[in-house]
Design a protein around this nucleic acid. Structure first.
Lengths: 209, 209
DNA sequence: GAATTTGTACTGACTGGTCAGTTCAAAAAT
DNA sequence: ATTTTTGAACTGACCAGTCAGTACAAATTC
């Protein structure tokens, strides 16, 4: 037990197996729910023996927790990478981030469904993890809003944190409604409508009423 | 003696039992999820024998489907009732509807959590029902947006249906984040931020031509 | 007006199937 | 040589659904 060395190669066999399991689980759980999805199903869909699940993760719960963490981290990373440099004006930057959100959900529909379903169950063991990383994702949006407030591009009394959460919820809801009800529509149309709503927010630095 | 007493036909024993079961189920399921909640638990919390569940509903699935329908219908009704008469300008009317949404969620937190978590599971038997009534709720918002477009209060090319879905998602997300993370804040603050975002949308009748 | 029937609502012990988790020897990959 | 995966059999807890029986009130009969 002196040599740990499992993480030698990036993309080793073990890593590949884990990813296969994640991908299998994410689809099945998003369709059926966690409780209704059996370990046997997941293993079969991943083309892997049941024992492998227990070798790689401790059990069903651990697999699921790891999956959630993997998923939400990917979302947060994607959003972070979508933030353009400081040369781009904040209004445009926010639009880019929202677009990245829509695109991500379009490409990882099952994962998005699952995250939405899991965010609101406050007393599952993995709840804290999901919540934390979700906060990171929202944080990316909030930062853009803060930058806007700073430059007087929107009303100065805006609760950017709450507004960030609002925009996040908006993106996810719209994107999933799109995938569910009219998947044939091009992403661009979805994003345009979203931008209209967001633009509205930005376009009113008037402390009316 | 035309039944003035407590034993009036309508609102009889059966109805009371059903409501007790709904109330028990909504809490349990919102906390643990559908799969993790057992019929025994629900019956116990409702102070009723297990058999009663099967007598009143066909089984677990049917109880749950009925619960969802009951819940979403109440939400849609509440929103509909919040629409003021035609003498109120559409901008104000929309604000009222959004406020009603926030208040409803504040008062029926468990139900809201459950609706959010369960709406995205496309191949459960109850999916279609939930979707339909959810569409009704969103429809109330969309109608206000339509009225605004009609009167030139917002950009004429707005996809009101999609924007309605966006606002709906926004309301639910913000309201639940509020209940979860800072429940001590007064409703008014939440609603104000929400109104800012929505006002932004309305306040930009951008002439795109 | 007492006895009997009918219908509705509910009860809770019981059952049969399901599934997470275990085990382990052997094979394959690194 | 070590790590990782396989495959299949096994166990035991758990739980959805069942069903014979209770309770009781209203209607019906005598």
């Amino acid at each position: 037990m002196q040599t740990p060395g499992p993480a030698r190669r990036v993309g080793g066999r073990r890593e590949a197996t884990r990813r296969k399991l994640f991908e299998a689980a994410v689809t099945l759980v998003s369709e059926q729910g966690y409780g209704a999805t059996t370990v046997d199903e997941i293993a079969e869909r991943a083309g892997v023996a049941k024992g492998t699940v227990y070798y790689n993760f401790g059990g069903k719960d651990e697999l699921y927790a790891a999956l959630l963490e993997w998923g939400v981290t990917r979302l947060a990373d994607t959003l972070r990478q979508a933030v353009p440099g400081p040369e781009v004006e904040p209004r445009q930057a926010l639009t880019e981030v929202l677009r990245a959100g829509v695109v991500f959900i379009g490409a990882h529909e099952a994962l998005a469904r699952l995250l939405m379903a899991e965010t609101w169950r406050t007393n599952r063991s993995w709840y804290t993890t999901v919540r934390q990383i979700r906060t990171q994702a929202i944080g990316v949006i909030t930062e853009q809003l803060d930058a806007m407030v700073e430059r007087g591009l929107t009303r100065p009394d805006l609760d950017t944190s709450l507004a960030g959460s609002a925009l996040f919820g908006m993106v996810v809801t719209v994107a999933l409604d799109w995938r569910t009800l009219q998947p044939e529509r091009p992403v661009e149309e979805i994003h345009t409508t979203l931008a209209h709503v967001a633009d509205g927010l930005i376009g009113s630095p008037t402390p009316t009423r």
